[in-house]
Simulated assay, not measured.
Amino acid sequence: MVRADRRARALLAYGRSFGPPQYLQLLVAPDDLQLQAETSNGVELGAKLLELAGLYGEVTGWYKEFTNYIDVGEESYDAIPKIHIWGVESELEWYPSEVFDADFGEPRSTPATRGPAATSWA
């Protein structure tokens, strides 16, 4: 993870995976040529906002390439030579209690008592 600022971070990741033939393929494949392993390469790039005026957020873009992709159904499977998938994911949260000095219904402890009974709801 690359740190540009205390409030923002960037992410760059690469992954490679391997998937052996599945049990259904072993039962229905007419020859060994259809029992090739599935492999994939993926890359992910993202940014995260840690706290800015009560806002927290992140956005991530990703891309994945599969070779010999195995799409398994209940009684059959499809071996797809090459497949590409990509997408963007994002999340944004706002906590107003970090900006405004007000009571938003969080539990607070009363100084007179301690223990489980010490928490009251405003």
Score class of each variant (00 low, 15 high):
M1I: 10
V2L: 14
D5H: 14
D5E: 10
R6K: 11
R9Y: 02
L12P: 04
L12I: 13
L12A: 15
A13M: 10
A13S: 15
G15C: 01
P21Q: 02
V28R: 13
D32T: 08
L33N: 13
L33C: 03
L35Q: 01
A37K: 09
E38N: 06
G42R: 05
G46M: 03
K48H: 02
L50A: 06
E51V: 02
E51D: 15
L52S: 09
L52P: 00
G54V: 07
E58D: 11
V59M: 09
T60F: 00
T60L: 07
G61A: 14
G61P: 02
N68H: 11
I70A: 04
D71C: 01
E75F: 11
S76H: 10
D78T: 13
W86H: 13
W86Q: 11
G87I: 02
E89Y: 03
E93M: 10
E93G: 07
W94F: 15
W94Q: 03
Y95H: 09
S97W: 13
S97H: 15
E98H: 10
V99Y: 11
D101W: 08
D101L: 12
A102V: 07
D103S: 10
F104K: 06
F104M: 08
G105C: 06
P107K: 09
T110E: 15
A112V: 13
A112W: 13
T119W: 12
